[in-house]
């Protein structure tokens, strides 16, 4: 391929400038600021700050609450990722079988994706309402006295369910188009080679879906870690109390509610490192992305 080049560096720089400015203002500047303030102790009333070195980090490492929230976040992320991928895959496989209905099916499920996280949380709130929530009623029918916002296990369950519900459509769309891009004749060849449908799924369909699945795995982990903030916030009605929260929510709570900007900055930095690792992992994956054809 022929490559066009610039003779000077100034023109490309000029062209890149708007993008760089935006990234700078909205990403690097706050990130840099967070790193800086994670080494300071902020006066809660805004009267200056003191340099404390790594104290915010050591405090974090020693905090049993932080460890608890981290554990919860881990389990929460794993559950949300696993369930939203699993259920979406199941739905996609079923939908793929009735190709003709797939279009309406697709649109119907896609609607949910258009719901913003806080709205999803609010809808969840209604579903799980103590008095009129249909899910609460349903669970009561099963003998489960569901108490959203009171019982922390129940709250966590609702958080998982709403987050999963919200993420299924996007996974579904990706899985379905992944499934539909598998040539019909390949599946037919497999039908002749293997009589068990389940085995065919794991031997042929699933490996061919693997690139899609890897990609979705990263997307879903990121989603569960960060984008569920709105869901969490609405479901616990802004009252952390002894309700379960995620790491991102804890940053918000400690920084904006608790006024501990230094500590919350340290938490943000930890999360930033996490994102960095995920991103590197994802790029590696995309580079080596399994291309079969």
């Amino acid at each position: 391929m022929k490559r066009a080049g610039f003779r000077t560096i100034s023109l490309p720089m000029l062209l890149l400038l708007p993008q760089l400015v935006i990234i700078g203002i909205f990403f690097y500047w706050p990130a840099g600021w967070a790193i800086q303030s994670s080494f300071y102790l902020q006066d809660p009333f805004g009267f200056g700050s003191t340099y404390v070195g790594a104290e915010n980090y050591t405090r974090l490492a020693g905090s049993s609450e932080y460890r608890k929230v981290a554990w919860f976040t881990l389990i929460y992320t794993a559950l949300v990722t696993f369930l939203s991928l699993g259920i979406a895959l199941l739905l996609a496989v079923k939908a793929d079988k009735v190709i003709r209905g797939a279009k309406t099916y697709r649109t119907l499920l896609m609607w949910v994706y258009a719901v913003a996280p806080p709205v999803a949380g609010f809808l969840g709130l209604m579903f799980f309402d103590q008095n009129v929530g249909p899910i609460t009623e349903f669970l009561a029918g099963l003998g489960w006295d569901f108490k959203l916002g009171v019982n922390s296990f129940d709250t966590a369950t609702a958080m998982v369910m709403v987050a999963v519900w919200k993420q299924i459509p996007v996974n579904f769309i990706f899985f379905l188009s992944g499934l539909q891009s598998i040539p019909r004749s390949v599946r037919e060849a497999a039908m002749i080679d293997n009589k068990s449908g389940t085995q065919r799924f794991w031997d042929i369909t699933f490996p061919l879906l693997a690139p899609t699945a890897f990609f979705l795995l990263i997307i879903n982990i990121t989603y569960a870690l960060f984008d569920t903030f709105g869901v969490v916030d609405t479901l616990i009605k802004g009252e952390p109390g002894n309700n379960p929260i995620t790491l991102v929510y804890m940053v918000f709570r400690d920084g904006f509610r608790g006024g501990d900007l230094g500590g919350s900055s340290a938490q943000s930095v930890v999360l930033m490192v996490l994102v960095l690792i995920l991103t590197i992992f994802q790029f590696r994956l995309l580079e080596r992305r399994i291309h079969y054809t």
């Binding site: 040539p183 004749s185 060849a189 039908m191 080679d193 031997d203 399994i290």
Partner: peptide, 27 residues
């Protein structure tokens, strides 16, 4: 189809893209 004791060769070959030649034949 798997129990009819037939083998089919398709126009676009329909090989399993993620398997080696040997595995394709062995499946």
């Amino acid at each position: 189809p798997a129990e009819r004791d037939i083998a089919m060769v398709f126009q676009n070959y329909a090989l399993y893209p993620h398997m080696t030649v040997a595995k394709n034949m062995a499946y």
